[in-house]
């Protein structure tokens, strides 16, 4: 398999966001066929104390790939970090080690889920506050720590 060079990741324009959470509802529709959003959505919009909004979502860094004991996580041809639910054994190592909390688990099943850069949230956002942008894999890639000491 040719190594993917680029990947599309989400970019968020906080100043445009009104906190309507349409993106979360669209996302939970993709993953769990429900419009609940919240913990069933891979993208989360968080209201800060000052009233502004922040996005929390997988940035496709792929650190979790090397955490998976059964090889259920890999980078697809389009660069997206993908979790194969059929192979996953639900250990939560990827959830625990994700540096930004982008790998999530909902109460519906033991296997985690994550953003797959499908763009549903982008299309659902009435304010154009979300965008999929193409970046170099090398620029976003993270490797689980392995250095001796710090």
């Amino acid at each position: 398999m040719a190594k993917p060079k680029t990947v599309r990741i989400l970019r968020f324009y906080g100043e445009k966001c009104t906190g309507c959470l349409e993106c979360e509802r669209a996302c939970s529709m993709v993953h769990f066929r429900t419009r609940e959003g919240g913990d069933k959505s891979a993208i989360r919009i968080i209201k800060e104390n000052d009233g502004s909004y922040r996005m929390n979502v997988c940035d496709q860094c792929g650190l979790c790939i090397d955490m998976c004991p059964v090889g259920a996580i890999y980078r697809r041809e389009n660069g997206v970090v993908w979790l194969d639910r059929k192979v996953c054994i639900g250990c939560q190592a990827c959830v625990g080690f994700c540096p930004i909390g982008g790998m999530r688990r909902s109460s519906i099943r033991i296997e985690p889920f994550k953003c797959i850069s499908c763009g549903s949230c982008v299309r659902a956002c009435p304010e154009d506050a979300l965008e999929l942008v193409e970046v170099e894999v090398e620029d976003v890639k993270e490797v689980v720590y392995h250095k001796l000491g710090v």
Binding site: C88, I89, G90, C91, Q92, G96, R105, S107, I110, E111
Partner: peptide, 19 residues
């Protein structure tokens, strides 16, 4: 086998503590 092959009484709690 999968993460629930033991059929635990409270899988939510397990995942929470494990994480």
């Amino acid at each position: 086998f999968d993460g629930l092959s033991n059929n635990p009484a409270d899988p939510e709690k397990l995942a929470e503590i494990g994480t």
